[in-house]
Structures are given as structure tokens and as C-alpha cells.
Design a protein around this nucleic acid. Structure first.
Lengths: 160, 160
DNA sequence: CTGTTAAATGAATATTATTCAGTTTTATGT
DNA sequence: ACATAAAACTGAATAATATTCATTTAACAG
């Protein structure tokens, strides 16, 4: 039974909390904050990486700085359940597609897409999506303004 | 005219590319890779932070490790346009809400939510969403499986 | 108890970050 | 084109951090 595949103690959670907020916090600082030796923190962090608890460290970049002013969500309806796992993988390969989620209920996917502008979106739909077999229809929702987008998980105080 | 508020040259883009992939890449490594002095890289990175090109460095944590198995998107229809900016801010304050987007067309928001399980989702809707004034209705889409979720922007090779 | 394993410490060393003076490059006004 | 000012870069010196590892401590099963 792989019930607790990742058993995280209080210290691990604290490390995660710090790292989720600032992935560039150095070991020395974390060690100071938690009152431990830097070497101990280093070991734990490496273990968290190996156990795939920490998936990646990434810099969040301001989309506006790269002129990617347009954000959209697109619902994609697919043919049927059989042989459609491939659609998800193909969608994931499209560069402007940031997220691909297999959704319940309507045989399909919800994807999150960032483009320069509406022309870029049209372009993506014409040139990329239309080339993927198994897509029946799409419904696009355009984002006017993003209020929050940090994707930070809620880290509990206790964990079994 | 604030046309080029962030003018990024080729080197900046390379730095962003590296940092987006691994926010813990150290200056020395970046400097080696780009054939420049570490001090120059340091300066540029700091400037990118100050110019708000780099918004934050965060560790992406495996939701499964924190037992947050459930991901949902919820469309939220709001009363009207007047006085509804507040709804977005209130939504953003709910811990399990990872993203809040003001969407076009239907007077409302699309939010991304992560909960432990379906009970957690119900809980959120009953205890948090229902308390927010101005929400007329909600439509929830449940994610069965996430194929991609890296939120990495496409960084162009050239930029004016 | 005793042996075994996992985790932490603390010191030594390697590497990196950071500062800064001096130089080069770039941009700009004349 | 030229002079000048501002911005960016280099390289060396110093401060700080990362990393390694032998030893100690803690946790725990038999």
C-alpha cells in the first residue's frame, strides 16, 4: 500500500513553504531560520527533489515583458475516449499552450494558452489545433484581466 | 509613450530562458554559459527583478505530495459589471484558489482551485464562495488528469 | 540492551556571490 | 562626425555560501 509515498515532517513542510515563496533562498538562510545546520537542510532539499516533492524551480516571468498580452482558456471537445489520450499529448507540445487538463464530463480538454494578441490566438487555432486529429470543436474563453496567478499550494501545518 | 517599457536584448532573453527552466542556476554557471563575467550577469538579473520582468522565483511542488489530489476550474457568474471588481479580489484571498481571471463575455471569473478531494471542493463552495456577495452562479469543471502544467512562457529569439 | 539505520552536527574545503575601480561600449546631443 | 554622458562589462579582491565528510546523536527493531 503506497499510502504515504511522501512522508513529510514539519521541517520538510517549512522548507517547502520557504522555497515555494522564494526558490532562491539559500541554504544558509533556511538553516538559520529553522535553527539547523546548513548541511542538514541541503540533505533534506536534495531528498525532496529526489522524491519528486519539489518538481522544479522556476522564475515566473512577466508575460507583458515578452509581449504576451493575451491569455485564453480553450475547451476542446474530442471524438471519443478511445485513442484520444494522444490529443492531450499533442496539445501539450504546442509552445503557446501552458496547461493541458483532461476534464470530466464532456470528453475533452481544457487548455490554457498565452499569445501575443488575438491574431496569435487565431493563428494557433488555425495552424496548430486544426492539425490535431480527433478534435471536434473548441470553445474559447478570453481573459480580460488576471487578478491572481501564483499557483502556490496551501501547505498544511501538520501532515501524517 | 510607454511602448517599450521593458526593452530586453538577446542576453536578457537568454538569462530568462535559463532562469525559467531552473531558477536556482547560479550566476557563475549563467556567466559561463553566456561567456560573460558573473558580475555582469548579477547586474542584469537584479535589473530584471527591479523592472518586474522576473516576478518571482518559486519552487513548484508536487500537489500529490501535499495530498491535493483534486484540481478544478470554476466559472463564476457575477451580478453585473459595477462593483464587481471586488469579487475578484475576494476570490483571490481564498487559499485554495490558485488563479483568478476576469473573463470576457459572461460577466464573471474563471478560477483555478486545488483541494484535497471532492469534499474539500464542496467545502470551499459552501464556506468560502457562498460568502462572497455578488456571485450569481457557478459552474465547475473537474480535472481528471493534468497532462501539462508548467506555465512556461515562450521566449522569443529576437525582440525589438 | 544492542545493533542498525537515518538524520544532524561541525569543521574543512570548494565554489559562488558580491563589491568596486577601472575600462569599454553605447547612445545621444551638437 | 565628434564629444560627452550614461550604461554595461571586466577582473580582481573579499565575503558568503555550498558541499563534503567524519563523527555524533536519535530512533527503533529485535
Amino acid at each position: 500500500m503506497a499510502k504515504l509515498e511522501y512522508s513529510l515532517d514539519q521541517i520538510d513542510l517549512q522548507i517547502l513553504r520557504i522555497m515555494q515563496d522564494n526558490a532562491r533562498t539559500n541554504n544558509a538562510d533556511i538553516a538559520r531560520e529553522l535553527g539547523m545546520a546548513p548541511s542538514a537542510i541541503l540533505e533534506r532539499v536534495k531528498k525532496l527533489e529526489q522524491k519528486n516533492v519539489i518538481l522544479q524551480y522556476n522564475a515566473r516571468i512577466n508575460p507583458a515583458a515578452l509581449d504576451q498580452k493575451m491569455l485564453s482558456f480553450i475547451f476542446i471537445k474530442t471524438q471519443d475516449i478511445i485513442g484520444v489520450q494522444k490529443v492531450g499529448l499533442l496539445l501539450a507540445e504546442v509552445p503557446d499552450v501552458l496547461e493541458v487538463h483532461d476534464i470530466a464530463g464532456e470528453d475533452g480538454y481544457l487548455i490554457k494558452v498565452r499569445t501575443n494578441d488575438s491574431a496569435g490566438l487565431v493563428d494557433l487555432m488555425r495552424n496548430s489545433l486544426s492539425k490535431i486529429e480527433g478534435i471536434i470543436s473548441t470553445r474559447t474563453t478570453i481573459v480580460l484581466e488576471t487578478v491572481k496567478e501564483d499557483n502556490k499550494l496551501v501547505i498544511p501545518s501538520k501532515e501524517a
